[in-house]
């Protein structure tokens, strides 16, 4: 499987910092897009690729921390690496709590930035994998008829066909037919596999 090309978004209003980071990341072969402000970042189209955001805590207009919230609201789930001019401890605690990968104090050495960026890309890649898997499952699930969905819900709880038939007011034979249809449509290999799929779907449904 080919590894998807990552992309890093740099958001900093200071031209020296922005271009320096962009240059450094490009020198290790990572594609970079840079933005002067949070608004610019939100405005423009972004490539759909695993990546992360390198974000200045102190942006004019929207602060970096506010921007982090905006991202979450806009369901942009890119991991965030904060950079700051001064080691502000309460701010870094808040940033880490809301899911930042790293909080770097300027000027920082390349290794700390590159490590953070790699961690960010990996985290995003994993998140995208899960998301891809779940959306595939959902697509399969949506192909089920309403009746099949009812049966599916009961099958994954481990109930025997007889009980399902009684509960849904149908013959045991019909349940069996639904069951094989469900397994085929969901491309499940076993009842355990099906249960696991139900879990993923429920988890993602609960999440959104």
């Amino acid at each position: 499987m080919a590894v998807e090309q990552p992309i890093i978004f740099v958001v900093d209003d200071d031209v020296s910092v922005r271009e320096g980071i962009k240059d450094l990341l490009q020198s290790v072969g990572v594609p970079v897009m840079s933005f002067e402000s949070a608004q610019d970042f939100l405005k423009g189209p972004r490539p759909d690729a695993p990546g992360c955001i390198v974000l200045d805590v102190r942006l004019p207009g929207t602060s970096g921390l506010e921007f982090q919230k905006v991202l979450i609201e806009a369901s942009i789930h890119l991991p965030v690496i904060f950079i700051t001019g001064h080691g502000d401890i309460p701010m870094s605690v808040m940033a880490m709590k809301s899911g930042a990968i790293e909080f770097l104090t300027k000027p920082f050495r390349e290794q700390s930035l590159l490590d953070a960026v790699n961690a960010g890309i990996e985290r995003d890649r994993a998140r995208r994998e899960v998301w891809k898997h779940v959306s595939e499952l959902r697509q399969r699930f949506e192909r089920l008829t309403p009746r099949e969905r009812d049966v599916f819900a009961l099958v994954v709880t481990g109930r025997p066909n007889k009980q399902i038939a009684a509960q849904l007011g149908m013959s045991e034979m019909t349940v069996k037919v639904h069951r094989s249809q469900i397994t085929k449509k969901m491309r499940a290999t076993s009842i355990v596999d099906l249960a696991r799929m139900a879990d993923s779907l429920a988890v993602s449904a609960g999440k959104s």
Binding site: V17, E19, G20, D23, L24, Q26, S27, G85, P107, F108
Partner: peptide, 13 residues
């Protein structure tokens, strides 16, 4: 500090 951060990053690059 801002331009110095730029200098360090550009130097590494």
């Amino acid at each position: 500090n801002q331009p110095l951060a730029g200098v360090v990053s550009s130097g590494d690059a």
